[in-house]
Design a binder for these strands. Sequence first.
DNA 1: CCTTGAACCTGCGGGC
DNA 2: TGCCCGCAGGTTCAAG
Length: 279
Amino acid sequence: MPELPEVETVCRGLDPVLRAQEIVRVELRREGLRKPFPPHLKKTLEKATIAHVARRAKYILIHLRGGQILVIHLGMSGRVLIESKGYAPKTHDHLILHLKNGRIIVLNDPRRFGIVLLLDADKMNEHPAFRQLGPEPLSNEFSGPALAARLKGKKIAIKTALMDQRVVVGVGNIYASEALFLAGISPKRPARLVAGDRAERLVGAICTVLKKAIAAGGSTLRDHRRVDGELGYFQHHFSVYGRAGKACPDCTCDIMKTKGIRRIVQGGRATFYCPVKQK
DNA sequence: CCTTGAACCTGCGGGC
DNA sequence: TGCCCGCAGGTTCAAG
């Protein structure tokens, strides 16, 4: 499911509900997801109190009092939902946290590509999942020159590079296509040729599209839900993603000649773009 | 080091 | 209706 806007939406929904709440019971309904759950997960979480919830890249960080972090990645199909007393577990509910106040936090993930970690806060960045992460796109460290520096010498297509979490975090298959459209850059352009003004434009486009998507509660194609079960609605504002054969929203060119938005495959993933507007 | 492709899973929609 | 195929928001690992 989730790219940065979806994960951010989930975190913003969780924080006010989980803040300062005590976990009284933990249900592990299977051994793990792609990897086994951490060995002392249940023992550590039961009786723990949550400090606050934050996000890094596409990871949900549930900070516990005492300096540990429950880290959750939603993979392709994960959801975190807030339920209340009397909730009956559903298929693919893998981890359930019961809070002292009666609230119930459910991690549901049909495809089980997600991950659950338990890390010491001060050592989080040493973990393999975090060690190589690039800058947060909505932070000050993400700029045209910073992006260009990370793309330098790369022969791979810019679309593929944008999805590399070492280049910039949080951008996935939807928002890579959308940001490149907004910046007027072809997804096939070699990454090393995105520099200077092009890199500036791309940084601006990434920030713009991510902020708008967050404001819309993310994009719901299938699985993404807000923590209260409501849908995101940014999917109604896509310019190119999933719109192969439709007219480009920006150009007035004749769709009969241009065939409109194109769908190609890069690195095994679908890419959508307008060959007229994006060079 | 870089790049590519497969693997990990389940579910859904389309075509026959 | 049923079956098979392709496709889906991500990451990781092996191989070239």
